[in-house]
Write a protein that binds this DNA or RNA. Structure first.
Lengths: 230, 230
DNA sequence: TATATTTGTGTAAAATATACGCATTTGAAG
DNA sequence: CTTCAAATGCGTATATTTTACACAAATATA
């Protein structure tokens, strides 16, 4: 079989962070090419002996200094055949999360132009990256309803009000505080701590933490973790 | 930026069919290479100017003669770096369905060794293809619960008992016939016909058909199509 | 001390899921 | 033709889950 493909394989990372009731995504400024100076998703070409997910970790780290906590494959975009005149680029997109403690951008030589952008105020990005972010957002919203992915976006200890706010922000709708709490607690994968949240005013809320061991047990047992709320 | 990647891009198709209360997947016998004579998923390398999904359609057609009705991207497998000694292969897997009318294998020159294998009796396949089929099955089972994908595996007109059986076969559990019927009908995307199913014995069942226009409307309105049953 | 604010718990009503009874329509057996 | 078994179609009672919302408790501030 003859084969001389002119296709290059890349990865892109759609990395979400959450702070001050806002969902953010990590972007870098393009340094070369036709889309120079436009903002784009971090990413780059895969090395020959490197797993796809490792390529994403490496590129994100190199370009922004951020170490990603959670990462999963999102979709492979490969139909924009004429994006680069030199060769066709097929890109495997990964979507991931970073908790608030690790959102800091460490400026290495290669990371001068990295920034967190609020989803609410997204600029026009290079290539089809706006579209890719929409796909990632859909996935994030979907996952929120049946997997405990929201906890990855919060500090390890958090009050219920923060979790509530996170769900409301990302899903863009109202949630009844009391029913939400009951439902989440009923799953049994949250653990009380003896610490309290120091709010500006009002009764301080107990801090909870996610017990991933317990969650894995529940998952094994095949228990439905579907989250619905008014 | 220098770049001389030694990676080739392929696609694989996990094509499901359903007949006689059994779920089938389409396989071909490997003709070359280290895995010669083993059964494998249909697929092959992507042409430079061809969309990924078109590559799947083409390969499946070439290798088996089957025209796929429904196709969606499943996952990109690229971490088995040493699978081929000549170069690394990264493969984008698509999962699809064929209805019973189109399951016939047309023997073209290239399609002598294609066959439908029952999921219940799957042989050991080439590469990691057994694993890929498991991923596809998980997706199929998942989709069955919130999307009307089952209809793609049946004739356009079908009795309720067939739909029931399909769900029971794929999900591998019992379903209450009466509650299932009520639930599915309540969505409103099924249309009665005036034809009847000629069963061996017992009261003949009315044939229904899937109204995809109606379904799209419901989808637009954002109505939940979650299917649960006892 | 009074008031606003946020948290924590409970409870009743509404909606949905589950279990299952039974009449209806057919083919086949007697 | 009658009877029986098998599959379909429709209905209803019960259990479970979701939704709406009342109210007490704990804290900051005026």
């Amino acid at each position: 079989m003859k084969l001389k493909q002119n296709i290059n394989l890349a990865v892109d990372g759609i990395i979400f962070g959450y702070q001050d009731h806002q969902l953010y995504v990590l972007l870098i400024k393009q340094k070369y090419g036709s889309q120079k100076d436009k903002w784009a998703l971090p990413g780059g070409f895969v090395l020959d002996d490197e797993k796809l997910i490792d390529a994403v970790k490496r590129e994100v780290k190199e370009e922004t200094g951020v170490k990603v906590q959670y990462l999963e494959q999102l979709y492979t975009f490969g139909d924009d055949i004429d994006r680069d005149p030199r060769f066709r680029v097929v890109s495997v997109a990964y979507f991931g999360t970073v908790n608030p403690k690790h959102m800091e951008l460490k400026p290495t030589t290669d990371a001068l132009d990295a920034q967190w952008f609020s989803i609410a105020k997204m600029p026009k990005l290079a290539f089809d990256h706006n579209k890719i972010i929409e796909v990632a957002l859909d996935r994030l919203r979907g996952k929120l309803n049946y997997q405990p992915i929201g906890f990855n976006l919060l500090d390890s200890k958090f009050p219920f009000s923060d979790l509530e706010q996170l769900y409301m922000t990302i899903l863009d709708r109202d949630i009844d505080r009391r029913n939400f709490r009951k439902k989440i607690l009923s799953f049994g994968f949250l653990e009380e701590t003896d610490e309290f949240h120091k709010a500006g005013s009002g009764r301080p809320g107990k801090l909870f933490k996610f017990n991933s061991k317990k969650y894995k047990e529940l998952e094994q047992e095949g228990i439905s973790l579907e989250i619905k709320f008014a």
